[in-house]
Computed example of a mutant assay.
Amino acid sequence: MAKLAFLGLGVMGYPMAGHLAKAGHEVTVYNRSGAKADKWVSEFGGKAAPTPREAASGAEFVMACVGNDDDLRSVCTGDDGAFAGMEKGAVFVDHTTVSARVTRELAEAAAAGGIGYVDAPISGGQAGAENGQLSVMCGGDQADFDRAAPVIDAYAKICRLMGPVGAGQTTKMCNQIAIAGLVQGLSESLRFAEASGLKIEDVVEVISQGAAGSWQMENRHKTMAAGEFDHGFAVDWMRKDLGICLATADDIGVSLPVTALVDQFYKEVQGMGGNRWDTSSLIARLRR
Rank of each mutant, 00 (worst) to 15 (best):
Q209T: 15
M173R: 07
C138E: 02
A129M: 04
P164Q: 11
V254F: 09
M86S: 09
V254P: 01
T223N: 15
A84V: 03
A247W: 06
G274C: 06
D71E: 04
A84T: 05
L4Y: 00
L256Y: 05
S42P: 03
M63T: 12
A48L: 06
R220L: 12
V136Q: 00
L182H: 14
R160A: 14
A225W: 14
G67H: 10
A37C: 10
D69Q: 03
G24P: 03
A109P: 10
Q176Y: 10
P121N: 00
M162P: 06
N219F: 11
Y266D: 09
K88A: 14
V66C: 03
D202T: 14
C76E: 10
K36T: 13
V258L: 15
H25L: 01
H19M: 07
T170L: 15
E130Q: 02
V151Y: 00
G227D: 10
K199W: 04
S74Y: 04
P150V: 05
L246Q: 01
I115F: 10
R276V: 08
N68K: 02
D263V: 08
C245F: 05
S281Y: 05
E130H: 01
R191E: 15
V183A: 11
A129P: 00
D202P: 04
G166F: 06
W215H: 09
A225F: 09
L286S: 08
L261H: 13
Y30T: 07
G243M: 03
G232N: 00
R276G: 11
Q184D: 15
Y155N: 03
Q133H: 06
T171M: 15
A226S: 14
R53S: 12
R104T: 15
V62S: 03
G18A: 07
G45M: 11
M86R: 05
S189K: 07
S74I: 08
E228C: 14
M272N: 11
V206Y: 08
V269H: 02
L282V: 09
P121L: 07
G140D: 10
G124R: 01
K172V: 07
R287M: 03
F83W: 10
D251T: 13
G273N: 10
K22H: 06
S123Q: 06
I152E: 03
H19S: 02
G166K: 08
N175T: 09
L186W: 11
V136D: 05
A284E: 14
V258W: 01
